[in-house]
Design a binder for these strands. Structure first.
Lengths: 151, 151
DNA sequence: TTCTATGCAAACGATTTGCAGGGAG
DNA sequence: CTCCCTGCAAATCGTTTGCATAGAA
């Protein structure tokens, strides 16, 4: 009745194994907290911030501290396992590195729309050619209003 | 020697007068703090955050509190006098409404590049046509590395 | 006179840090 | 055995809010 639902991916998810391997190869240590964070991130389809992630992780492993989640995410980014994207005002969400798409966030309903990863490639190249500025166009979401909220 | 330098624009700057008029027409009150904030913003060519602005304002009017600056900026935005843009991690800068260009912020040196206001118009239209999402493409700066910092 | 705007202090949310102990390699 | 990683508590940073008063209209 009050049992915790099972992970949507098993501990043998190949992506989890790959990420842990990458971590190990880069000299990082594989700990309970790191396994839990990575596992939770892979199990959740949504857009999880560090706080959300910590909450989810804690449902299974109450010892894991919020600050550990932040440090873990930080380490994962340094090691190239994860990337973060800003969804508007302050909140950052985490993704497996590679294959990150663009995000569009509706200011009214908070909904998140996924847009193709190559959406701004052309503009990015133009900016680079003209001003020499190499833009990471996916690092911030686009803000605006979604179709439904435009009444 | 230790005298405060004069404003770069006078109290009779036509843009200041226009903004104050707009404020008045919208039912807002013209106070010392509001005059000071607006005057400082117009006098500074750069990219001022609320904090920077408060510091500058205080050089002349030490009574004006940081929270007043935030509330003033907020009111100005509601009344259509100003707009803010996010230059990366949390920090927002303020501009006179209208004629806001795109901003590109270098992650290494922090430098800010101004890009044409219509830079993303085409993409914005494509996004609107395809997903019905009306993006405010200028609300967040582009992050990346400027030509100089790319070694 | 009326009601908005202000100063001040305290609250806030997200993230970071210092420190001493724990556990991976 | 060494050094990275962790838990915990406290600090930080930018911004917001509650309250009583000052002051614009």
């Amino acid at each position: 009745m009050s049992r915790v639902p099972p992970d949507r991916t098993g501990p043998d998810d190949p992506r989890l194994a790959a990420a842990l391997e990458q971590l190990r190869l880069a000299g990082g240590r594989v700990t309970r907290a790191r396994r839990a964070v990575l596992g939770t991130l892979l199990a959740e389809p949504g857009h999880l911030s560090a706080e959300d992630l910590a909450k989810r992780v804690r449902e299974r492993h109450p010892e894991v501290h919020l600050s550990t989640v932040y440090r873990t995410l930080d380490a994962f980014e340094r090691l190239g396992v994860l990337t973060h994207v800003h969804l508007g005002h302050g909140r950052a969400i985490y993704h497996l590195a590679g294959g990150v798409s663009h995000h569009a966030v509706c200011e009214s309903c908070g909904g998140v729309l996924h847009l193709p990863a190559d959406l701004l490639d052309e503009v990015r190249e133009r900016i680079e050619a003209t001003w020499g500025f190499a833009a990471d166009t996916r690092h911030f979401a686009l803000v605006g209003r979604c179709a439904a909220c435009r009444t």
